[in-house]
Design a protein around this nucleic acid. Sequence first.
DNA 1: GACAGCCTATCTACTAGAAGGTAGACATCA
DNA 2: TGATGTCTACCTTCTAGTAGATAGGCTGTC
Lengths: 200, 200
Amino acid sequence: MTGGSSTSTDILDCARALIIAGGYNGFSYANIAEVIGIRKASIHHHFPTKLDLVCTLVSRYRAEAAKGLATLEQAIPDPLEQLRAYSGYWEACIADAQRPFCLYALLATQIPVLPEPLVLEIRAYFHVLSGWLTQVLQRGVQQGIFHLAGEAKAEAEIFMASVHGAMLSARAYGDPRVFGAIVNPMIQRLASPPAVGARS
Amino acid sequence: MTGGSSTSTDILDCARALIIAGGYNGFSYANIAEVIGIRKASIHHHFPTKLDLVCTLVSRYRAEAAKGLATLEQAIPDPLEQLRAYSGYWEACIADAQRPFCLYALLATQIPVLPEPLVLEIRAYFHVLSGWLTQVLQRGVQQGIFHLAGEAKAEAEIFMASVHGAMLSARAYGDPRVFGAIVNPMIQRLASPPAVGARS
DNA sequence: GACAGCCTATCTACTAGAAGGTAGACATCA
DNA sequence: TGATGTCTACCTTCTAGTAGATAGGCTGTC
């Protein structure tokens, strides 16, 4: 349902931008209507309730993200470069100010006040992302590219958290460069050979 | 102003809990009134507008946090233990589910839709925290306890981001233990001597 | 001690506007 | 002809915020 009508896509894109700016309770149908130039009632035609809208949005972008990771997987064989491409994607999004936060990370902060179906979608995204990162790290270890201090799964969770924390810091400081300053050393660390006699 | 009346403190405490759950737009005067058992108009007596309320809240807890860090500083001399005490504080808060997220981190996610005075307070908190962490790391390096890959300031930003990201992941997965699983290895890493011939 | 004046804190009752949502008319197009 | 998409006009509930009454507790003064 809600296949490919341009209007419904416009609504979803607009809702995504508004959620990324201010969360689930930070936007209304009136906001969307104003931005894309239709009436509130027309949005209800495409998405009867706000929950319908946001659930559709969240499940669509999760599918898109999964596809994006799969594509990246095929285009770039090297695990280290995969990680760099992933972080570079976000670095560009944040620098553009076009998509300066992860939709799911932002919604996750408000989980206690979100409806259940939405929470399940958000959680699913975290599992998809951390699962992919785990695989990348495992492959990197097998190829001798990464040298991990702990289990790949645990290191993937650490890396994912630092990416989300870096988005938050960039927003808090109002400086997009903060993101790269945090995430790039994290990648470097995964790739560094075990230091031998290094001094600080 | 708003010195120490029990009611105004109750209002602030309640507002904090509600913001931690759902952000700036996730609560109303009616919510607070219901929880603490007074009427909406009485809240307006203490805090004329919502912005007054949240600004008071945010500046009060920032002062409290700064005092808390100073106290911790005096009670615990060892930098590594200071870091563990800091992360342990949050680990306990999250496990209790009493204060399962940092007020400022949560508000920071919504910066694009928050009023300017609030944004300045939030940013100030990030500076206070990252400043303190930087000092702790510097002292640890001087004492030969920490071995950093980069500048203390940069490492402090990385650590702070991982703490906030860990809160987010704990909330997303609905599992408090995730916080420690992410932050504890980060602390361990700072304290580990430069590995010599370590194998993964 | 009684009284007046003021301050603080609470209340009821109200407002204007925004929220999410509905009903039904109208146009368009396969 | 029926499905799709948009519209106007409306509803109910919630939102932040205001006005004005009331009650109790101080403090100064006669």
